[in-house]
Simulated assay, not measured.
Amino acid sequence: MKIKTSYTTTDVHVAGEAYRIMKDAPFDYYQSLQELNEQFPNIYEQEMKLLLNEPRGFAGLNGCLVVPPFKSGIDVAVVFFDHTGTVPMQYGGIVAVLTALLESGQLKAKPSAEYNIETVSGVVTARAILKDEEVKAVALKSGLCKVVKKQVPISYLDLQTEVTFVQADHLYAIFDKAELPFDMEIENLPEINQWGKKALEALGEESHAFSRIILLDHSQKSRGRIKTVTFRPDCYIVRSPGFGTLAASSTYLLENGDMFSGRQIENESIYNAKLSGELIAKNECDYSFSFSARGFITGIQTYVLDPTDPLSEGFLLQ
């Protein structure tokens, strides 16, 4: 085997969502993180395909490029990306990066336990709780979330319903599960997938450029619990209960008067992973939330590219 290129990565999952953290950046100079973010899809095209596509990756894998900070007072800078290009923010990626860097000793533990992470969306301050050199939890805050448009009627085949759009880390299209006949359990995945395809088709003509669809079951909201399934536009189900999903769903419930401020709410996925959040600020129609989650390192790998490999760019099956 000939080796043309090699990259060492750390894989971390946060509530089931997988992140591949890359630190071997090609040598180049950038004046700012924004410049790196803009040039990333072209300069890092090979790395994106090599590390995220099959046979080394899969359709749901997220990427994080860690680089030295561009600003003073910052601990680390991160560019988030997926199979199509850069992503402005991944809250789970913040948890994954801090977990990997602190547990490997690449980032020195601070007495304050607070770390500043530079992203293209701004500086994120997160608090990492360590015990016996393990990161037991990472706490962070969301950006502002707000309802963009309420109860928009849509229809497709037998799907006649309404959707509400909420801006959080993505623009979410939220559907109420109440009128649907199936429970949101893993054994009902075929029915859930079928519903997701109809919802995507129904939203095809909608002017909002949504990034995620949420199917929300809030039947247990009085107990501070919700259950969600989140779809990407390609109908792939997001594996995590989702920080953004939790923030968007909480914003939706607060605006409808279905949730009271000052209490914690827990979001559960169809495979029983859970994330919790709490409203920390409200300014007119804008909401902000705090989260806490733990990341788990699942592997440290070196990936290589053989120039004779006919699948050097990989592939995706969805």
Rank of each mutant, 00 (worst) to 15 (best):
Q301Y: 14
T302I: 05
F210V: 03
G224F: 05
C285L: 13
I280K: 11
Y172I: 08
P26L: 06
F165C: 07
F210Q: 03
E47G: 03
Y19H: 15
D28P: 02
S276C: 02
K71Q: 14
M48S: 10
F165M: 09
Q90F: 07
T228D: 07
V238S: 00
S276H: 04
L246H: 03
Q31G: 15
E54F: 15
N188F: 05
D176M: 13
L316A: 09
A247I: 02
Q106D: 15
Y115E: 12
G92E: 09
V76D: 02
D28R: 04
D258P: 03
E134T: 04
V147D: 03
P69V: 09
C145D: 01
R239T: 10
G299H: 14
Y29L: 00
L189Q: 04
F40I: 03
T164F: 12
I129P: 00
F289C: 08
I117C: 10
Y44A: 01
F58T: 12
I174K: 12
Q106E: 14
T302D: 04
H208K: 08
T298F: 11
M1Y: 11
C285S: 15
R223Q: 15
K136G: 02
Y19K: 13
K197N: 14
D176V: 10
V166L: 10
S290C: 11
L50I: 10
I300E: 13
K274L: 00
L311W: 00
C285R: 13
I214R: 11
L317S: 11
D169T: 08
Q194N: 11
L279M: 15
P310C: 02
R239W: 00
L216Q: 13
E134Q: 04
Y7W: 10
Q106N: 12
F182W: 13
E45R: 09
M89Y: 06
A248S: 14
E133I: 01
A25W: 05
L254S: 08
S72A: 13
V97P: 07
N188L: 07
S312A: 03
A137F: 03
V166Y: 05
Y156H: 15
I129Y: 09
F165N: 05
C64I: 06
L254H: 06
S288L: 07
D24E: 07
G85Q: 00
T245M: 01
T86Q: 06
I74A: 11
M89Q: 06
L159K: 00
E187P: 03
L130I: 01
H83S: 07
F40E: 02
L61K: 13
M22Y: 14
L107V: 10
G299Y: 13
N267I: 05
V14M: 09
K141V: 13
S312N: 01
A178P: 10
I43S: 05
A293I: 01
R294N: 08
D176K: 11
T84N: 06
E162Q: 07
M259C: 06
Y7R: 09
S104R: 00
L102D: 11
M89C: 07
L200K: 04
V147A: 11
P88R: 08
